[in-house]
Design a protein around this nucleic acid. Structure first.
Lengths: 230, 230
DNA sequence: TTGAATTAAACAAACGTTTAATTTAATTTT
DNA sequence: AAAATTAAATTAAACGTTTGTTTAATTCAA
């Protein structure tokens, strides 16, 4: 009751852009909730409540819960595409430099947006909303193709040894995913207190970057004879 | 966790296997559905329908939808624990052999149970059902601790170079996860037809095993000087 | 005065769960 | 061995909530 009054006062003070801000605001809260509870686990009512708007406003702005979800991903998820394309086409960079830049890009982006990462991962995992599911896949496959092309060029140039490019990229992304999948788990593995936010910790970022780069480089540049297991 | 299972087994001492088979059957169908649509995305009615049992039977057997889910994980998710413990304590194995055996164990187990993997991953990603969520985490953390101990022993013995044990294990699991997260995506990456089942393909298994083992071994046994990026 | 923004209330549909009645199977009594 | 008794398994129907969405009235800014 009090809140709505306060809101009305602020509505007077901020003139026309209120509606755009409100849309933005709803999307931010939605990202938070979807990341926490998943798409089906989040109710419009809870979202409206947390965002402090009327239930009807969500359908008024976005049409439906699912369209809100689509708008969310459309708005936030294209992020790595242009970056990777740019790196791929930059002729001043060596292959190993490109790989390192891509690793840095992913680590930076995912660590700074844990919620988005969580939502994307959920959408990959669950195949309920078919076209959205497919969109996320396509985005990822395109990125993989670029990275694979870079690695294959390095192999042809004989600066890399023969590796499995698709699976190597899967290892890079998979490592980050494994860290992002659960904050609690991450803290336990990294021996931090329970309510620490590891994703904002520059030390974790450094550690993660270092591990991935070193592992990828060791794998790309050297060859050890595989041990046999009987 | 154990108690509930034991209790249920003793509760129906009826030798009539029909009921136990039916329970088994419901759990299998539930795994299928949860893997496809997630926990909240699956309705009791749809589950009952697909399993060809009355809706009430699910609550009759399991008490609730959530308890069914718990029973499911309790029944199927303990798998790697004993195996890793056994490998960890086996004194006839070298460190690198242990690591390879663990990699083989995970790959084999996950590839043979894609649904279970999917459900576990979802439960890590979503923190709705708190204790269940924590159980999955604990299971995973315990496994990590064993693997970390093995790697650290290898480092002390100077058969491994100094690496980040936690993150290396994250890379192993993460690579497998990345393959398991979406069948469609996996097929696109591996250039298979759309309705191919990659997880049953021995060639993919071989390829995955080979990549992970080789990458881990390169990383553990050799050292390359890290390139600087400005 | 007009069109957009916002609201409370109502909507039907779907949800997980419970009930109460009935069928089936096993055990006990005759 | 047949009948009676008891308990478990199964069912259809209903329960009260909650879901996403819509409506129709009201407030707001221009």
């Amino acid at each position: 009751m009090f809140n709505s009054n306060i809101c009305l006062i602020f509505a007077f003070q901020t003139p026309s852009n209120m509606s755009i801000d409100k849309k933005e605001h709803i999307m931010n809260v939605a990202m938070e909730l979807f990341a926490e509870k998943g798409f089906e686990g989040t109710s419009i009512r809870e979202l409206a409540n947390r965002a402090d708007v009327n239930i009807a406003m969500i359908n008024y702005y976005f049409g439906s819960k699912e369209k809100l979800f689509e708008a969310l991903l459309e708005n936030k998820a294209r992020f790595m595409r242009e970056k990777i394309e740019a790196i791929h086409n930059d002729k001043s960079l060596s292959e190993i430099e490109k790989i390192n830049l891509i690793i840095e890009g992913y680590v930076t982006r995912f660590l700074s947006q844990p919620g988005l990462h969580r939502v994307l991962q959920q959408e990959l995992l669950v195949s309920q909303r078919v076209t959205l599911h497919q969109n996320v896949i396509n985005l990822f496959v395109k990125n993989t193709e670029d990275v694979v092309a870079i690695i294959e060029k390095g192999i042809r140039k004989k600066v890399f040894k023969k590796v499995d490019p698709q699976l190597l990229f899967a290892s890079v992304i998979g490592t980050i995913n494994q860290i992002m999948v659960s904050r609690t788990m991450c803290n336990m593995l990294m021996e931090k207190e329970k309510d620490f936010n590891p994703y904002a910790d520059p030390q974790l970022k450094k550690r993660l970057l270092n591990h991935i780069k070193q592992m990828v480089q060791d794998h790309l540049l050297t060859h050890t004879e595989l041990q046999k297991t009987k």
